[in-house]
Design a protein around this nucleic acid. Structure first.
Lengths: 232, 232
DNA sequence: CGAAGTTTTGAGAAACCTCAACCGATGTGG
DNA sequence: CCACATCGGTTGAGGTTTCTCAAAACTTCG
């Protein structure tokens, strides 16, 4: 049995929801000025603190955004998948400095749109702007909700929660296998722990028949029990 | 010696930075539709999950915004002071549901502006909108930065960091005393711990002559050492 | 002044981290 | 195509941090 972890996922610009709010002319403007960039697995899109003058829309692949904390350890803020927008902060920050770093988890394709173009669209199209603000403010909420859970949940609960959210975001194949290839270290960085601790929790989950682990593949066996455990 | 913890702090609408971007007419529109609300210490402004159709601008006092996690413990997202804007999420969320709860830490005064008015301003005034987006996206960054630090810093480091940021936000009197009256429990909720643990850290700081503690008053003795400790 | 809420301390337990070693997979160059 | 190097995964032992529970002392406010 072959368990393929990385099915090709791809979206076209016209399939990206937030761009629905644009007129044909505006779409044309984007087509004219945006360009596609290709990133090999493990290559860096941008670094936290570096100057950036455009936004990125993921078309294919998976990109992790992260921040490096003291002691050099890093925390993964999110895994961006096709349709997701990155680096929008640079639109408004006067210094256009990136708040996070971004790295390709697999070979990826992103659409880069210069800030000047996006700003033009925002200025002229209120429903687009409103959608954008909604998106950003929901990111605030996501962070705060996560933080609230984080400060009082055990690693076990957080890990269950992470697995469920990965299932939600990336889906599973016919055998219940998560459609995402990700290292233990990255999983650990997403729940704010070290790989050793994460591995122990996963091993517990396997022992309890909540998931199965076949090399790097995670197979969901009992989602409803996981959900109880996650305490969402 | 009298150590007064709560000097009257107050701002007028015209002193609020984000409103600088409005024209005289727009200011008039706000004056017409906004109204001031008064909240007694410990009273609730709004609850997470409840419907809300306006934004709040703090004019006087201190308001804490917080979320309740599983097990009923809560996490304080921020202390809002005069000039700060709350509940902006309700502007964009289609259901206008509050993401956080808000409670007055002392007798406070806030200006309530209905969403319909704010939306009108956003639609017609791009620099105001831009400023607003900047504000929101900087909140995203604040949360993520905090989260990144949180997941890998010790309680001691986080507490040092909290004290410094309170000093920054609320200032100190001539004796180095923090101009904010706050309970140990609230301090604990801001660094994601329980009061007992926070108290022990504060007691350590006192023993090390970094701060002095006179009842609920926190007096800064060695800010630079605290800064080293906070590892920012 | 007294009730209620808040702060402090202590003891013990639990969760999680660190370090170190080892295994297994993956990839690379001769 | 194999040997080796590298990286990721796993396990164990031991230590540290932080939490829980309980009791006592102190503040605040009506």
């Amino acid at each position: 049995m072959i368990l393929e972890a990385n099915p090709t996922r791809e979206v076209k610009l016209q399939d990206i929801k937030i761009l629905d709010y644009l007129s044909d002319e505006e779409h044309a403007l984007i087509e004219e000025h945006a360009h596609t960039r290709y990133y090999k697995k493990r290559s860096i899109l941008f670094h936290e603190g570096s100057i950036n003058s455009g936004i990125y829309i993921v078309k294919k692949g998976v990109i992790k955004t992260y921040k490096v904390g003291p002691y050099g350890r890093y925390y993964i803020i999110g895994l961006m998948k096709p349709g997701d927008i990155m680096a929008y902060h640079s639109l408004f920050s006067n210094r256009s400095v990136n708040n996070t770093s971004a790295k390709a988890c697999e070979d990826s394709e992103v659409c880069y749109i210069p800030n000047s173009i996006v700003t033009k669209l925002l200025e002229s199209n209120w429903s687009f702007t409103k959608k954008m603000m909604e998106l950003i403010s929901s990111d605030v909420n996501t962070s705060n909700t996560f933080l609230t859970g984080f400060v009082q949940k055990s690693l076990r609960e957080r890990t269950a929660e992470l697995l469920l959210s990965l299932k939600e975001d990336f889906g599973v194949d016919e055998f219940g296998g998560l459609q995402l290839r990700i290292t233990r270290k990255d999983l650990a960085c997403m729940v704010g722990t070290v790989p050793e601790s994460l591995i122990r929790v996963l091993a517990d989950f396997k022992r309890e028949r909540l998931v199965d682990l076949v090399s790097r593949k995670i197979i969901f066996l009992d989602t409803s029990e996981l959900r109880k455990l996650a305490n969402i």
